[in-house]
């Protein structure tokens, strides 16, 4: 892995449902690789992408790999922010309690367990995207 700067702000934008296409699973592979490069990495879930974080998924009857448990490890990969678009959530009849609880341990705060998810509006997401160096859109 390259050890020298520059460090850039990467945002992985997830817009598609978890299993209707292969995008979500392969996007997660790209996220884990980006994390390995020590970049400033965050994720955003919007549109049907919010379904990726829904709890209690079971893929055993559709012949596809169950990957959503990997989201719980994002904190261990130094991901510090997962943005979820509340308007996408509401439009699909979902509430925050339907989603996986995602946490990280804050090294700078005596390893306090903190929420990884930030609930944002579409307007806020536009500002967040504008502030990135690299936006990987899936």
């Amino acid at each position: 892995m390259p050890s020298s700067p520059p460090t850039k702000r990467f945002l992985c934008v997830n817009r598609k449902a978890p299993h209707g296409t292969g995008y979500a699973a392969e996007a997660l592979e790209a996220v884990l690789m980006t994390a390995a490069f020590d970049q400033r990495l965050s994720l955003a879930f919007l549109d049907d992408g919010v379904y990726q974080l829904v709890q209690g998924q079971d893929t055993s009857d559709i012949g596809l790999k169950h990957f959503s448990a990997t989201f719980k490890a994002l904190g261990d990969f130094d991901v510090r922010t997962v943005y979820v678009d509340v308007e996408s959530l509401e439009a699909r009849g979902l509430t925050p309690s339907d989603l996986l609880p995602l946490h990280y341990e804050d090294e700078a705060d005596d390893w306090a367990v903190k929420d990884l998810i930030q609930w944002v509006t579409r307007a806020q997401l536009a500002e967040i995207m504008d502030a990135q160096d690299v936006v990987l859109s899936f």
């Binding site: 390259p2 850039k8 790209a30 490069f37 970049q39 690299v134 936006v135 990987l136």
Partner: peptide, 18 residues
Amino acid sequence: LGQLVEAGIEADRLLVFG
């Protein structure tokens, strides 16, 4: 995939066509 991340780091702009 590291080649993708490296492109994001080294290029001025990374354009996604999808």
